[in-house]
Each structure stands twice: as structure tokens, then as C-alpha cells.
Design a protein around this nucleic acid. Structure first.
Lengths: 239, 239
DNA sequence: CTAGGCTATATTGGATCCATTAAAGAACAA
DNA sequence: TTGTTCTTTAATGGATCCAATATAGCCTAG
């Protein structure tokens, strides 16, 4: 696979989110470029983008550092997402849904009903649901026709998933997770109802509630593994 | 003055905001670099940042274009700012102001009272007030202790001022502008009161109202001058 | 005269080179 | 032994070079 700019960016982002580059790791342009088999140029650009996204911080003269994101910060990001999506829902309700948007949302609601309407939910089901969930939210945001909302959200896109499992679902407690997803899905129904009926304030309120509901489920990630420092020494010290 | 990365970025941004590069202009790396007397590298980085800020769009294979921002888009951006600053005010109220933040806000309120308490406001007074206004808002945001808010806002920082005079005050109607500023300042007082008394919901509401109040004053900028296309031809065709 | 293909070139993307900075380690002196 | 200074080197920032691409204009053939 040939690597281009966006490739390098998403590859690095994925490594950070997966924890391959653990929080607090130092990371420099040259060794990273070697690691990915590209030159410094695309790496430089990617680093700046990741800094913008809040995943890296620059240490003047000593490269970059993978930021360690606190639970408080994640909760803050979720709240921000809540007010922005709340605004989106309100504006969508106020300006009215297009035929295709309404249809798409209805279909997704149906899909969610299907997923959740089984005896015992498996991990794959929840992943499937989350996928659907993202599409639902994206369509609401799109329906607001306010590009500023999308712009503001793009900064928060990845942050909530930074500390590995912080917002991922808890595999050891599937029963509780199932309840949580069912509750969230109810809220989707309510939001849909409010939007198609032009109830802007109501749509906004439910959407904010919806974000806050996930807040209660933020849990501490397991202790990070030993620091992985990607730097010249590290790469060459393989006897 | 020696130019570094940030320099190039802010210089280009200023040129766009000032209208030196009018909306719809095409703009390419090489000629821009020559114009500023730097190499392509810092320009490339600046272009990507400006694209992030929503001031440029990439035309695959044909360079970049200075985005023309519609009034609707500006209004959307102002609404976004409203909900985000509303959230900030709420969180500031909920977690309580630090001594220094409270003191700073009180001082700024006093300063605003002074500025507005004269017979006839001059243009310089309004500029002075706007300066104070920005500091007031910045402190509220800071007091929320939620970095995600700042991150989300940074995308909207410059957008509202993109079309030259869209959000600037109307010099031909100073009386009305004075009224508007006095009203806004009242809201500052109310926000302050709500925050120091821990009334989160109230603080949020007033702050949103405050943003929406400016919405009513968005006016169409004067017709833009003829397009200025910065490209190879343009630069060399000076007989 | 028109349509299709070809060519020239404007333009970005990636790689490498040089300059500059700052941190870390070694060496020397007190 | 410890503190200070000098030197080495890791690291970024900026400049230039080469490659790939796509647009636009031109030329030719029908």
C-alpha cells in the first residue's frame, strides 16, 4: 500500500488510540518517518494535525509527546459534544428535515430496533449498534446545515477515545451495557420524534441528555503499560 | 523581521480577514511563498492550518481558494459560539470562580461601565469596549476549566470576521451601536451575577442570549472588490 | 467547423539537504 | 567530589529538488 499524507495521519492516530504509543511517550519526526517508511515531510504535517486534535503536545526542542488525557478532560469533551449536537438537533427541527434525511433516520431507528431485539447481546452486536449510532448522529448534524457545528466537532472527534478503553463498552458487564444501549436507543426515538414535529427546544434537550447519559459510563482505563519511547536510541538499540 | 511558521500563518490570515485576498480568490503555494519571501514549506503548513480554520478550501490540482463566507454561515458560527460559551458559563458557575478570576471579571465590568458612561461614544470607545469584551469572554471560558471548549472554539475564532465588515460595528449608526453595546454590557453584569452565585443554568441561558443578541446585528458586507487571483501568471504579468 | 486527443505547464506531494537550537553528557578545575 | 563549561548530538525549521497529476489550451483530423 502506498502511503500518502492522510494515510500517515490516520495510521499514527490509530496507533495512539490503540495504545501502541502509550500516553506520555515521546515521539520524534525522524524515527517515526523511518518506522513508517516515509520521509519527514508527511510526518511533520501529521504531527501538526494531531497536535490540533489534542492528541500530541509539542515539547520545544525535544519532539512531541503523546498527551495523557484525564477522565475529567474526556467528560469535558463529551459535554461539548452534547451541546453541539443539541444545537444541531434544534436547528434540524427548526429548519425541517429533508425527505432523504427523514427516511435515513427512520431506517436507522428500525435497524437499531432489530439489533437490540434479541435475547442476549453479543459484543459484535454492540459494535454494530455503535456503528449505527454514529451514522444517526452524523445525519442529525448534517440536517442542521450548519458547517460551524461540524468544524467544532471535528476537534472532538477522536479525543474521547484517546485513553484506550475509556469510552469503549465494558465487556465484563454485558447485561448493564445492554440496558445502557436500550436506553440510548429510546432517546434516539424521542429525538427523531421531536425533530420531525419541529420541536426544536425539546430535540435539543433530549440530545444533551443523551450525551450526558454516556457520561455516567466513563470508567478509568487500566493502568497503561510501560512507556514506549520512540527515539533514535530506542530504534537502534536492538542487539 | 525574520519570518517563522506562525508569522506566515498569521500574516496570511490577516490578509484574508482584511480582504487583501478577497473571497473567491485562487491562491497557490509557490507565488505566495515568493510574495512573502519564504519557501514553500511554511506556506504549505499555513495553508493547511487555514483550511482547518475554514478560511481556505483546497481545489484538487488547482491550488486553494479563499472561501466566501455567507451570512448564514456566520450566523451559524455565532450560534455555535453561543452554546459553547453558554456551557462555559454554566461550568464556571458550577465549579465556582477562583479569587483571581472573580476579581478580573469585576474589574472588566467596572472598565466597561467607565467606557460606556460618556455622552457620545466614539469609534475608539467601541473598539476599546470590544477589546474588553473579548477579555471578559476569555476569562469565563478559562474559568470553566474545560479544554475541549477552547479547542472547539479555536475553529470558530476567526470565521465570524472573515467577510471584512460583517460583524464589525456600523459606523454610520453610532447611536444604535451605543444602545447595542449598553445592552450587551448589561448581560455581562447578569452573567457575572449568575456565575458568582452558582446559578449554572441561568448563567448558561444569559450567555446564549448574549451571543444571539449579536446575531441580530449581522449585516451584509459591501460588495467585494474585483477578484484578486494570486497565481504565476498574475505575478509575472507586470509589463 | 467541431470534436477528440495530445502536449505543455501549473501545481501539489514527498524526499533530502542545510542551518539552528537546545538538551545531555563528558571533561576539567576547584 | 562537585560544579561549571564545553562539546557532541538529537531534534526541529526552512529551502530546494524530484516525481506525479490534472487542468487547460492547442493542434489536428474528420
Amino acid at each position: 500500500m502506498k502511503k500518502n499524507q492522510t494515510n500517515v495521519l490516520s495510521e499514527l492516530r490509530q496507533m495512539i488510540l490503540d495504545g501502541a504509543l502509550s500516553a506520555g511517550s515521546r515521539i520524534a519526526e525522524v524515527p517515526t518517518a523511518e518506522m513508517l517508511g516515509v520521509s519527514r515531510t508527511p510526518v511533520r504535517i501529521a504531527f501538526r494535525a494531531l497536535e490540533q486534535e489534542g492528541l500530541l503536545t509539542k515539547l520545544a526542542g525535544r519532539g512531541y509527546e503523546v498527551r495523557s488525557i484525564s477522565v475529567e478532560e474526556i467528560m469535558g469533551a463529551v459535554e461539548v459534544r452534547g451541546v453541539l449536537e443539541g444545537l444541531a438537533a434544534r436547528q434540524a427541527a427548526e429548519r425541517g428535515l429533508s425527505q432523504s434525511h427523514q427516511q435515513a433516520l427512520a431506517l436507522l431507528l428500525e435497524e437499531g430496533d432489530q439489533i437490540l431485539n434479541v435475547e442476549s447481546l453479543k459484543e459484535a452486536d454492540l459494535e454494530h449498534y455503535q456503528n449505527m449510532n454514529k451514522r444517526f448522529h452524523d445525519i442529525v448534524i448534517e440536517a442542521a446545515h450548519n458547517p460551524a457545528i461540524q468544524a467544532a466537532l471535528s476537534r472532538n472527534e477522536h479525543l474521547p477515545f484517546a485513553s484506550s478503553s475509556a469510552l469503549a463498552f465494558d465487556k465484563k458487564n454485558m447485561q448493564r451495557e445492554a440496558k445502557r444501549f436500550q436506553f440510548a436507543h429510546q432517546q434516539h426515538h424521542h429525538v427523531y420524534h421531536a425533530i420531525v414535529n419541529g420541536l426544536g427546544t425539546r430535540a435539543e434537550g433530549i440530545m444533551r441528555e443523551h450525551a450526558n447519559a454516556t457520561l455516567g459510563y466513563v470508567h478509568q482505563p487500566k493502568d497503561s503499560d510501560s512507556l514506549t519511547v520512540i527515539t533514535e536510541r530506542k530504534l537502534h538499540d536492538k542487539p
